[in-house]
Amino acid sequence: MKGIELKNVSYQYPLSEAFALKNIHYTFEKGKFYGIIGPNSAGKTTLCNLVRGLIPHFYEGELSGDVLIEGKDVREWDGSLLSTKIGYIFQNPFTQISGVKDTVLEEIALGLENLGIDKEEMIERVINVVKLLKIEDLIKKNPNNLSGGQRQRVAFASIIAMDNDILVIDEPTSQLDPESTADIFEIINMLKSQGKTILLVEHKVDLIAEYSDEVLVMENGHIAYSGTPSDVFSNIELIDRGVAIPQAALLSHDLQRQNKPFDFITITNEQAKQQIMKRMSCVNGSY
């Protein structure tokens, strides 16, 4: 099913000559996990802003082409209604805390209050999301005194509580330590298993390769490559163009160059491990 369709979309930020997005043609289907990668200022965040309806509802500037969200043109959507459809989480854990609530519990409930959810349901939903994200020990704390990783988990909880079908997640771990990063990916994986449509911008390509149904590689405001992770990462052009690819794929490509290829281009560590095990057992068997 079609969730978000982009038809020949181009966009320039206000007063800017350069195109932030150029001729984007892509359809995001419901229930799938999309990994978006590419170098800085390739247009990844702009793509998020577009899909999230912030362009054109918050950012002015020149938008051409059609953006259809659930079949309806983004320009016809009420900007504030889109926030109930599409959840948005981004990198800065500090600005995502409202600053008007003095316990994490109330912070998570803020979005539900704004949606006018009645109190009984609000409490139920908050309990569920707190259990889901395992942040029971945080609920009584003041969200304004938490660490970055804790704040980011609260930000996820606050958005997940609103129960959006589509989640746009823009570099959620770029300001976090490895341990918090692992926590966040666990959360994202769980959301995937719940059947949410997820658009994740992330530099950590190993994780993208592992979780994504589809990968989009952005370059200079357009989608340079797209397809399943194995399609995209087995393309050797990516390395030549300086796109970061998973370690497993890198190893696979290297072996291929040395005429000792794996059975296929591996993209996850698990696949690479299996190939190596297989080869080792062959080696052992021949002697």
Binding site: P14, L15, Y59
Partner: peptide, 26 residues
């Protein structure tokens, strides 16, 4: 400039009305 364009009277503070200003996207 990218903050100024979003404020009611902000555009008045953009030099030359911003015609030759480049704005980075985020």
């Amino acid at each position: 400039v990218r903050t100024l364009v979003k404020l009611p009277q902000g555009k008045l503070y953009i030099p030359n009305n911003g015609k030759d200003q480049r704005i980075h996207n985020i």
